[in-house]
Design a protein around this nucleic acid. Sequence first.
DNA 1: TATGTCACGGGGCCCGTGAC
DNA 2: GTCACGGGCCCCGTGACATA
Length: 212
Amino acid sequence: MKIPTEEGALKNVKKLLKPLVEKRRRDRINQNLERLRILLLEILPNEKLRNPKVEKAEILESTVQFLKARSPSADHWREYQAGYQGCFQKVLHFIQANPDISLERRAVLVGSFSSFTSLCRPSPSLMVADLVETGPSSGLNPVSAATVKTPALTQSSAASSSSSSSRTTGQKSPDTAAQLPPPAPLSTSKTQESPEDSVLLNQNCLVWRPWS
DNA sequence: TATGTCACGGGGCCCGTGAC
DNA sequence: GTCACGGGCCCCGTGACATA
């Protein structure tokens, strides 16, 4: 007959304890599923969620649906930004092409448009991508109109940055440029200005950028 | 009765940590 | 560097229960 040692007894205790620990863990899962069900019930018109015995899979499905519906798709964003930037570029072109407008007034007009930037505020990931491209001190840069990025390009670089951050553990914040992959090179986005206009803008105007 | 869902318990894997 | 250990977690088999 073997007398159980202290170590063996400890192992036995732990062995007995394990089911309890596992039960607590399952309870935590179930508690939070229940909380999720109640939260969803306040938001979604899903009658199944009224049943406290609703399947866990149903709760999770409803959650996924809710989250999907809540976040606007990237396509919608792209369309919105493209439209907004298209309008702005037309106005910009009009200002540039009008010989009756002095250089000072052109600068004032462009600056005035910048006060509307909050209407086209991009998602944080887009702003981060822009930060990477232009540097933190960019603000209103004296740049040519040719540097007005196409929405598609901006979106693609943002997408790459967000996908890379999603692979991290979540402890790194995406707000520093060093943690992001190098930005895609700027495409030669075609604007309708003449070379002279471009030079003009380089020298005299602050170009408003809707994402800054 | 057949089927689906759930809770439970045990085995084992993964990863962080400390000792060497 | 590597080895042992512990904690957290996942997976699987089993039985109970509800429902069509």
